[in-house]
């Protein structure tokens, strides 16, 4: 409270609300404390198998089938991202931009993790809903997925990180300018469903699952590991040069 009180009066109430909100999420509790508020159980959860939520969205209304939703994935400075392309991976980049089909699951490659050089992660991203931008603004306003070191550190430790990205409701938006430092995720307990929590604050659009799963050694199992290599679309003007072979695939699976 002392720190909050010395801040500018304009932000004091907003920051206090954030502290209380985050404190409520971080603090532990009995599993019964996190029971659904209503007298119902949600049909879909973030813990469902990858692709379940997105495929269910395809059955809903709206032009979602066959739409390539632009997505941008960023991380801490220096972290490199790559996507499967052809027989290998695309060239690593610090800002991975691509159009993903809704309902498909894409596994991407993370390298150059700070504090864990040499360690590689293969998380998945599942686009479960789309945005409706004005014409020719789709690629300028992709779904921004910003990963941080906590995600990587937790995944390397053997645990599973599930991030649900949601479109914030401007009516209930946090009155703080969004930067790379202020864009911190809400932490929820393991007894809560992050998809349900995200649904309360906005419209969930993507699910990122970060674990420590590594590609299988046998090449025949790679399509299953990469969820069938679903199609994706590069951004206009972006170079999609990729290795002709699997040189940038870890040596263990060659």
């Amino acid at each position: 409270m002392t720190k909050v009180s010395i801040l500018h009066a304009r932000y004091s109430a907003g920051l206090l609300a954030i502290v209380v909100l985050l404190g409520g999420f971080v603090c532990g509790g009995e599993p019964s404390d996190f029971l659904p508020r209503g007298s119902f159980n949600p049909l879909l959860r973030a813990s469902d198998p990858p692709g379940t939520v997105g495929q269910t969205r395809l059955l809903g209304r709206g032009p979602v089938v066959g739409y390539y939703q632009p997505v941008a994935i960023t991380g801490p400075k220096g972290v490199q991202f790559a996507l499967p392309s052809g027989n290998g991976m695309t060239l690593p980049t610090e800002r991975l931009e691509a159009g993903f089909l809704i309902g498909s699951v894409y596994r991407f490659h993370i390298t150059q993790i700070p504090g864990a050089l040499g360690v590689e992660l293969f998380p998945t991203v599942e686009v479960i809903d789309r945005t409706y931008p004005p014409q020719h603004l789709a690629t300028q306003y992709p779904i921004e997925i910003q990963l941080d070191e906590e995600d990587f550190r937790t995944a390397i430790a053997g645990r599973m990180v599930t991030r649900v990205i949601y479109l914030e409701d401007p009516q209930t938006a946090i009155p703080v300018q969004q930067t790379s430092k202020t864009n911190v995720p809400f932490e929820v307990s393991q007894f809560q469903d992050p998809l349900a929590v995200a649904d309360e604050y906005g419209r969930p659009v993507a699910i990122v699952r970060i674990g420590s799963l590594f590609p299988p050694r046998q090449k025949s199992l790679l399509p299953e590991f990469f969820f069938g290599y679903p199609q994706w679309a590069p951004f206009p003007g972006a170079s999609v040069a990729s290795s002709a072979n699997i040189d940038n695939i870890p040596s263990e699976i060659k």
Partner: peptide
């Protein structure tokens, strides 16, 4: 549009 996220560690 502004995007935020909810994180769960399990």
């Amino acid at each position: 549009p502004r995007f935020r996220s909810v994180r769960q560690v399990s």
